[in-house]
C-alpha cells in the first residue's frame, strides 16, 4: 500500500505548480517511504529495520526538505516551476512510464524472494518518474528534486533486496551525500534560476584548428 503511495506522490510532484509544493510533497513521500520497512518485515522486526526507517524519515522527510526550503529562501528564487512540457502532458508521460515499469518488472529475474509483488514495479516507476522530472523541468532546484525522487526509488529497490545485497543501502547513503553537495553548490553559487545553457564550443574548435 505504501509503495503505491510513493508512486502516487511522485506523480503529484510532476503535476505541482510551485517549488514549495514540490518540496512538501517530496517530504511526505519520504515519510511514507520510511514506513515500508515496517510493513515488509512485520513479523520479525530487527534493529536494522527500525534504524533504517527512522533514519529515512528524519533525513529525507525532514532534513533535506528543510535545507531545500532554506536554499530557495536564501537565494530568493521565484517560486514558479518552469516546465518544458505542460503539466497534463507530463502526468500522461508519467502514467505511460508507470505502465512500462510494471510491464518490464513482470519479466525481471531477481536473485532473492521479494516481500511484496508491488515493490519492484513501484521502485522502478519511481526511478523513471524522477528521471522524467529531471528531463522536463529546467530549474536547478527541480533537478535536485528529481534526483531525490529517483533516489527514493532506488531506496525502495534496495529494500526489496535488503537481505541479499546489503551494499545497495550504502550506495543510497553515498547518493545522499552527493545531493547534499549539490544543494550546497546551488546556495554557494547563487544559481537562482537555471543552469547556464551550455556554451558553444566554437572558440575551442577554432583553437584546435590553429594548433594543428
Amino acid at each position: 500500500m505504501s509503495c503505491i503511495l510513493v508512486v502516487f506522490f511522485a506523480l503529484m510532484i510532476l503535476a505541482a505548480y510551485r517549488l514549495s509544493g514540490m518540496i512538501q510533497i517530496f517530504a511526505i513521500q519520504s515519510f511514507v517511504l520510511g514506513f515500508v520497512p515496517f510493513f515488509m518485515h512485520a513479523d520479525h522486526l530487527g534493529l536494522r529495520d527500525v534504524a533504517l526507517a527512522v533514519g529515512t524519515m528524519i533525513l529525507k522527510g525532514a532534513l533535506v526538505p528543510y535545507i531545500l526550503f532554506w536554499a530557495i529562501r536564501h537565494v530568493s528564487m521565484r517560486s514558479e516551476v518552469k516546465p518544458l512540457i505542460g503539466f497534463g502532458m507530463s502526468v500522461i508521460c508519467g502514467a505511460v512510464l508507470i505502465a512500462g515499469a510494471f510491464w518490464v518488472s513482470s519479466s525481471l529475474k531477481l536473485p532473492g524472494k521479494v516481500a511484496s509483488d508491488l515493490l519492484i514495479p513501484c521502485s522502478l516507476s519511481t526511478v523513471l518518474l524522477g528521471f522524467l522530472l529531471m528531463v522536463i523541468r529546467t530549474k536547478a532546484v527541480t533537478q535536485v528534486l528529481g534526483y531525490l525522487v529517483m533516489e527514493n526509488g532506488i531506496f525502495l529497490f534496495a529494500l526489496s533486496l535488503f537481505d541479499v545485497m546489503p551494499i545497495l543501502i550504502e550506495m543510497g547513503i553515498l547518493l545522499d551525500i552527493f545531493v547534499a553537495v549539490f544543494i550546497m553548490a546551488i546556495v554557494v553559487n547563487h544559481i537562482n534560476e537555471e543552469f547556464e545553457k551550455t556554451q558553444g564550443l566554437d572558440k575551442r574548435w577554432a583553437k584546435m584548428g590553429e594548433s594543428l
Binding site: 528521471f131 529546467t138 543552469f195 545553457k197 551550455t198 558553444g200 566554437d202 574548435w205
Partner: peptide, 27 residues
C-alpha cells in the same frame, strides 16, 4: 574539424535534452 563544427552548430543547448537522451537510451 569541419564536421565537428557543423555538428556543434546544430547542437542543442539545453542540458535537459542530454538528460533525455540518456533517459531514452536507458529505457
Amino acid at each position: 574539424i569541419r564536421l565537428s563544427r557543423k555538428i556543434d552548430e546544430n547542437r542543442n543547448k539545453y542540458t535537459q535534452m542530454y538528460l533525455m537522451y540518456i533517459f531514452l537510451f536507458l529505457i
